[in-house]
Design a protein around this nucleic acid. Structure first.
Length: 414
DNA sequence: TCTGGGGTCCTAGGACCC
DNA sequence: TCTGGGGTCCTAGGACCC
C-alpha cells in the first residue's frame, strides 16, 4: 500500500465549463458575443429567475438565482433567453467526448462539469501542459471556455477549478492547503452550506483551518458521518476514485413545476399532475427504466414543501399508471389550500429488462411460477453463488414483497 | 414584482421479524 | 413470565449541489 502510494500520486482534473448555458448560446449564435446574455426559466413569467448568465451580464451585477425583474433593473439591455436543453445536452456530449480522448477515466458530474484521472496519461509533457491542451481543444473545437483544477484528489481538484475563472488553470497540491485554503471561511468549502456553517460556528469553527484542526469527535456529534469527511477535506484528504460508471446508476427521475399562479381547483391540479407524470414516463421510457417508488411534491402558497410517496407493488413506467398513483398520493395528502408547485418523481428506478423478469413471475399461475422461479434461481446461483442467494434474488428480481417466494426460498435452502 | 428545477446522500423513527 | 437486542424495510425530511 505504502509502496504503491510512493510509486505514483494520482493526478485528477476537474473541468468546469464557464457559464455553460450562456456560452453554448453564444457559440451557437456568434452575434451574441461580447453582449450581456442571460438564460432564465420562464423568462417572461412572473416567477422567472436567472439560471446562468455571461460574464458581460455579471459585470452589471446579474447572477444566477436572481429574479428576472431584478436582473432587468440592473441591466436593462440584458438579452434574455429561454433554456434550450437539447442544445446544451449536445454540447455537453461533445465536451465529454473530447475529454475521453485524454483519459478513459472520465466521470461526468453534471451537464457542465466532470473529473478526469490522468495519472497514466499525461506522460512526458506533464500534467499542466496536458490540462492546457484539453482546455484549448475544447475552446477551439466547441468555442466553449472552461476552467480546470489540477490536484491529487477530487475534492482539491474541484476546489482548484473554482479559483481561476474564466479560462483558468489552477494547481492545488496537498502541501499548499494550509496556505491557500485555511484562511477562507468554512462556508466557502464545497459541501458546507448555510446550515452546516451555522452549526460549525456554534462550536467556534469559522475558517477551513479551524475545521482542519478541530476535534473529530465533536464534529461527528455535530454532523454525523459528514463530520469526518469535512475535516478530511479541510486537510486535503479525499480517497474517492474517479468512476466512469457512476452516471449509469440513476436513482430517481422527477419533474416539477412552479405554477403560473397559485391554484386551488382540484381538477386543474390533476391536469398538471397528469402532465408531469407524462414527462416522467417519457424520460423513463427513453432511459429504459421503471419506477419502484413514486413521490409527489406539494409546495403551498407559504412555500412550505411536502414530499409524500409510496413503494409500488409492481414497477411502473406508463404515463397512465404513474398519474393514477400520483393522483391518489395527492388526494391523500393535499390540505385543500392554494398550491404553488407540484412535482412527480419516480424513485429507486430499475432497468426495464430486470423489471420484466420480475413481472413475469407474477403473471403466471402458481405452477408456472414455480418453474420460472426455479429458472431464475438457478441463473442467480450461477451469478452470485449459494450463500448470497437471498440477496441476489432481492437485487435482481425484487421478490421480497412476495411471501410465496420467501417460503419458496426457505424450502430451497433446506 | 419575492425567490427554479433537477438531483444525491444521510438520518431518524416506526413496524416488523427473529 | 412481563421483557432484550439486532437487523431490515419503509417513509419523511433535512442538507447540499449545480
Amino acid at each position: 500500500m505504502e509502496a504503491k502510494q510512493r510509486n505514483k500520486a494520482r493526478v485528477i482534473l476537474h473541468i468546469d465549463m464557464n457559464s455553460f448555458y450562456a456560452s453554448v448560446e453564444v457559440a451557437h449564435n456568434p452575434t451574441l458575443k461580447g453582449k450581456p446574455v442571460a438564460i432564465a426559466g420562464n423568462a417572461k413569467e412572473r416567477r422567472g429567475v436567472i439560471v446562468t448568465c455571461s460574464y458581460e451580464a455579471r459585470a452589471y451585477g446579474v447572477h444566477a438565482t436572481m429574479p428576472v425583474w431584478e436582473a432587468l433593473k440592473k441591466c436593462p439591455n440584458l438579452i434574455l433567453m429561454e433554456p434550450n436543453f437539447d442544445l446544451y445536452r449536445e454540447a455537453s456530449m461533445n465536451m465529454f467526448e473530447i475529454l475521453r480522448q485524454y483519459s478513459d477515466l472520465v466521470e461526468p458530474v453534471s451537464i457542465d462539469e466532470g473529473y478526469l484521472d490522468i495519472t497514466d496519461h499525461y506522460g512526458e509533457i506533464g500534467a499542466v501542459e496536458y490540462a492546457k491542451s484539453i482546455q484549448k481543444d475544447i475552446l477551439n473545437r466547441l468555442h466553449l471556455p472552461s476552467s480546470i483544477g489540477i490536484a491529487p484528489n477530487k475534492f482539491l481538484a474541484k476546489t482548484a477549478s473554482d479559483m481561476k475563472k474564466p479560462m483558468g488553470i489552477f494547481i492545488l497540491r496537498k502541501r499548499d492547503v494550509p496556505e491557500v485554503l485555511w484562511h477562507l471561511p468554512a462556508s466557502k468549502m464545497h459541501g458546507i452550506g448555510d446550515k452546516t456553517a451555522e452549526k460549525l460556528s456554534s462550536v467556534g469553527v469559522y475558517t477551513i483551518g479551524d475545521l482542519a484542526n478541530f476535534d473529530v469527535k465533536i464534529l461527528t456529534q455535530l454532523l454525523g458521518v459528514n463530520g469526518t469527511r469535512l475535516k478530511d477535506h479541510a486537510n486535503g484528504i479525499d480517497h474517492r476514485v474517479v468512476d466512469p460508471e457512476s452516471i449509469y446508476d440513476f436513482k430517481s427521475i422527477g419533474n416539477s413545476t412552479t405554477l403560473p399562479r397559485d391554484i386551488t381547483n382540484q381538477q386543474e391540479l390533476y391536469t398538471i399532475l397528469d402532465r408531469l407524470s407524462e414527462k416522467v414516463a417519457s424520460r423513463l421510457e427513453y432511459k429504459e427504466l421503471m419506477a419502484t417508488k413514486l413521490h409527489i411534491t406539494i409546495r403551498y402558497k407559504d412555500r412550505k414543501t411536502y414530499n409524500r410517496g409510496c413503494t409500488l407493488e409492481n414497477p411502473l413506467d406508463k404515463s397512465k399508471d404513474i398519474s393514477e398513483v400520483a393522483r391518489v398520493l395527492f388526494q391523500k395528502n393535499w390540505d385543500g389550500s392554494a398550491v404553488r408547485l407540484l412535482g412527480v418523481t419516480a424513485g429507486e428506478v430499475i432497468e426495464r429488462s430486470s423489471a420484466s423478469k420480475q413481472l413475469d413471475l407474477f403473471t403466471f399461475s402458481n405452477d408456472e411460477k414455480t418453474v420460472h422461479l426455479e429458472e431464475a434461481i438457478s441463473s442467480l446461483k450461477e451469478k452470485y453463488g449459494e450463500g448470497i442467494l437471498q440477496k441476489g434474488i432481492k437485487k435482481e428480481a425484487n421478490l421480497t414483497e412476495n411471501s410465496f417466494s420467501k417460503d419458496f426460498l426457505r424450502q430451497k435452502k433446506e
